[in-house]
Write a protein that binds this DNA or RNA. Structure first.
Length: 611
RNA sequence: GCUCGCAUAGCUCAGUCGGAUAGAGCAACGGUUUCCUAAACCGUAGGCCGCAGGUUCGAUUCCUGCUGCGAGCACCA
């Protein structure tokens, strides 16, 4: 029976609910799942494994106070199965569970391996993310979007959806015109040669120079500088000329555009490969600019769109503070908005999706409200199925990133600095002992852990202040901390195997043996770890259904803490055990190792075997 | 001005459906290694959950108003 790796209730809660539910009065009207959903870990560890709040039972008990209900339930509850002890504590019923039952309920599914996602839901979802512009630099800010979009793709798949991961590259538009203006009119033929390495970044620097020059001229012109005004006007005329030629596919310009665009695309491919991000479909703005303009003309003729100050657009009065949504510029060229109309159409037509998610920063919230509203007014009913996932910006300690001020951290510099630091601080000590390839691979995995976890471990509507030094510290609540706790578990399994001690593969399917092995897991750290592992599916469920990977981050950090408490405690050693206790601990370590690695991978973070 | 977001420990942040004594990380102080990885673990200290009302048996959580910070608001994407 295929099953998505996410559930709204945990395995332990379900096992307990099966015993608790029959004891509750039918008048309470609670289903088995309701009861399971009301069970949660108690406030403090010494209160037991699960707690049941009796507040909602009040009406069924003629309004009796919850503490009295809890006391009554504690009396009635059978304690010879999964529930070993039931104690009323105020309005709560605190339950201590039988170790063998806990282990049997939680560990086998994890120890078997969670594997690849299975489609269990009807809703097919497209997640569009990344959307970098060609001819512009790729920097840390873009990494938040990539990390977030990729994690959402993975989480929705784990949640049981069929997902189309889509990218949408900005390969046409005003920024291209500015870059090509600089490239063609300012650079000499000799200067037009890009470096062998980092062609895309080099192109981005040309765009930055062009843009800075235009801003400078504009500033001077406003201050009354006639010369600057003349230069600005000329440049603007030229960029418009380039833009028009680009949209009409002028052969000469097209050749330059194709050549330079390719430099950026190659760099993006390299970045995505390093980031372990894969797209099922890449859309290009260049494939929707013409269809977009056609749509604008069509709906202008139909009277849905109107002309205003030379531009074409629509007045969406629903958005009071800025009702006019421009769809075609006065010079006849297209805008981001123009292309978004055609793109939405294309997505639904080509992929038969049921839901379309746009991962784009929060500043575009009004834009997408306009897009979806406009689509609806055009009679495109599927606009209802479009959904913008906004997120806050990434800033530097000294303030917002600015290409102009040169304060951006470009991707390549970020990568090199992280890899260099990780090797020097943690991995160089293994030189000679490990192969260079393994050291490189481990540094790569840790760098991904640091940057992705850093970007994801924060609610989407919180700003991130990116402090490279702090993130490279790798202490505390970080990706590498979680990777480290998994590596330790891997190390335990590896050393146990060397000592000839392995998990009996038949154990996970043998109820009797499971109970016997599980009953040995009585140390507080072991019980706590089983309880923590029980939360994995719920964490994935919440992260996927709320589209918030940060929820999984928070869970994995608490799981890693439980793992490290177990690994550190000498009373929980594995290798010096035998028999049922050895099997119980091997089962626990195997399950925890799988949970951590699988959980991290749902965030796009690989786990090194050792570190 | 209008719209949206944020405000919780010294700093950076969690806090599921409104429920027990509001939790982590960093920084500070003290402790743990005859080592299944000290990138770890344990302990101490640290709080007007921005302010004022409202709803509720119960509010950090929901509602209203206010204050502070940030972002967006016509030819950029």
């Amino acid at each position: 029976m295929p099953e998505a790796h996410s559930r709204s209730t945990s395995a332990l809660a379900q096992a307990v609910a099966a015993v608790l539910h029959p004891v509750l009065p039918a008048e309470a009207g609670l289903s088995l799942d309701d009861v399971a959903g009301m069970l949660a870990p108690p406030r403090a560890k010494n209160m037991g494994d699960l707690a049941f709040g009796c507040f909602r039972l009040r009406p069924a008990y003629d309004g009796a106070p919850p503490p009295k209900i809890a006391a009554e339930l504690a009396e009635k509850l059978p304690t010879d199965g999964v529930i070993a002890q039931a104690v009323a504590a105020g309005p709560f019923l605190n339950l201590t569970l039988d170790p063998g039952s806990m282990a049997a309920a939680v560990l086998p599914t994890l120890a078997r391996g969670l594997g690849e996602p299975v489609v269990t839901r009807d809703e097919k979802v497209m997640v569009e993310y990344s959307q970098p512009n060609t001819h512009k630099a790729f920097h840390v800010g873009h990494m938040r979007n990539v990390s977030l979009g990729d994690a959402l793709v993975r989480l929705l798949r784990a949640h049981g959806h069929e997902v189309v991961a889509a990218n949408y590259l900005g390969d046409v538009g005003a920024h291209i015109a500015k870059c090509l203006w600089w490239f063609l009119d300012v650079l000499t033929e000799e200067e037009q040669q890009p470096p062998n390495d980092g062609k895309g970044e080099w192109l981005g620097s040309l765009y930055a120079k062009a843009n800075n020059q235009l801003v400078d001229w504009e500033t001077s012109a406003k201050a009354g500088d006639a010369d600057a005004q003349a230069k600005l006007d000329a440049a603007k005329a030229r960029t418009t000329d380039i833009l028009l030629k680009l949209e009409s596919r002028d052969p000469e310009l097209l050749a330059v555009w194709e050549k330079t665009r390719q430099w950026s695309l190659e760099e993006f491919d390299e970045i995505y490969a390093w980031s372990k991000v894969v797209f099922d479909r890449v859309f290009y703005e260049s494939e929707v600019d013409e269809p977009g303009l056609k749509l604008v003309q069509e709906y202008l003729d139909k009277g849905v769109f109107v002309e205003s100050e030379g531009a074409i657009g629509i007045f969406n009065e629903e958005i009071k503070h800025m009702p006019f949504f421009m769809l075609r510029k006065g010079d006849g060229t297209s805008l981001y908005s123009t292309k978004d109309l055609a793109l939405a159409n294309l997505k639904f037509k080509d992929f038969a999706i049921d839901r379309s998610i746009y991962v784009v920063d929060m500043r575009q919230s009004d834009h997408f409200k306009h897009v979806f509203l406009t689509l609806k007014k055009m009679g495109f009913e599927q606009a209802e199925l479009c959904h913008h996932v906004p997120y806050e910006m990434v800033e530097l300690p000294e303030g917002a990133m600015s290409t102009r001020k040169g304060t951006v951290i470009l991707f390549r510099a970020l990568r090199e600095r992280m890899l260099g630091h990780l090797q020097e601080a943690y991995l160089d000590k293994y030189r000679g002992e490990w192969s260079d390839a393994e050291i490189d691979e481990t540094a790569h995995a840790l760098a991904l852990g640091a940057i992705k976890y850093g970007m994801l471990n924060r609610d989407v509507n919180q700003k991130i202040v990116f402090d490279l030094e702090a993130w490279m510290n790798l202490e505390g609540n970080t990706g590498p901390y979680i990777q480290y706790s998994a590596a330790r578990l891997g190390s335990i399994l590896r050393k146990a195997k060397e000592a000839g001690k392995v998990l009996d593969p038949a154990l996970v399917d043998n109820a009797e043996a499971l109970r016997a092995a599980g009953s040995e897991l009585v140390q507080p750290e072991e019980r706590e770890l089983i309880g923590a592992l029980d939360g994995l599916r719920l964490a994935v469920f919440n992260a996927a259904s709320h589209l918030k990977p940060s929820l999984l981050c928070t869970y994995l950090h608490s799981l890693a803490k439980a793992v490290n408490r177990f690994s550190t405690n000498k009373k929980c050693k594995v290798i010096d055990q035998d028999g049922d206790r050895l099997q119980g601990r091997l089962l626990l370590v195997t399950a925890a190792n799988e949970a951590l690695r699988w959980g991290l991978w749902q965030l796009g973070i690989p786990s090194p075997q050792r570190m």
